[in-house]
Write a protein that binds this DNA or RNA. Structure first.
Length: 148
DNA sequence: GCCAACGTTGGC
DNA sequence: GCCAACGTTGGC
């Protein structure tokens, strides 16, 4: 199981809007970057990730789950662009801000910290756990591996 | 609003 | 295939 991070400017698409889509989720459309696309191609159903608000907010605000494998992006006129579908799972009780991530030793190698421009990125298991802990979430619950 | 970092494009 | 020019992203 891998973990991911999806970045969005809240004015364009916020976690509130994501939650409003419910369990069906939505296309994570609009990605026009090969690295980001390749990460989406590697995603598996049920994998979890963070929802990060860039620009305004600059914080990890929620947990999402991959609910549709990579497919052509309906908003692209070029079929080489693909995206997955994701749905909101839960909020982080305490959003974890970027500057907090930057000053957290366990997150010093996190892609969010080292390459702020990548809009879809992998998250290490330890990084996932650290942010859940800092955000006030039970790691197993956030990862979807705990008891329900 | 500025600018640094990064990616992409296109001329050669 | 290199590299300069350009566009975009996103932190500050």
């Amino acid at each position: 199981m891998a973990f991911w991070l999806f970045k969005s400017e809240p004015f364009k698409w916020s976690f509130e809007q994501q939650k409003a889509c419910g369990a069906d989720g939505t296309e994570w459309s609009g990605v026009r970057n090969y690295q980001a696309r390749n990460f989406m191609r590697a995603m598996v159903l049920g994998e979890r990730g963070f929802f990060y608000h860039s620009n305004e907010g600059k914080a990890v605000v929620g947990i999402v789950e991959v609910c549709g494998l990579a497919h052509p992006d309906s908003t692209a006129d070029d079929p080489r662009w693909e995206c997955v579908d994701i749905r909101a799972v839960m909020d982080l009780p305490n959003p974890v801000a970027l500057d907090v991530c930057k000053s957290e030793p366990r997150l010093k190698d996190m892609v969010l910290v080292t390459n702020s421009r990548l809009s879809v990125q992998p998250v290490g298991e330890a990084e996932f756990a650290a942010i859940c802990e800092m955000g006030g979430l039970d790691v197993a619950a956030a990862a979807g591996t705990g008891k329900r």
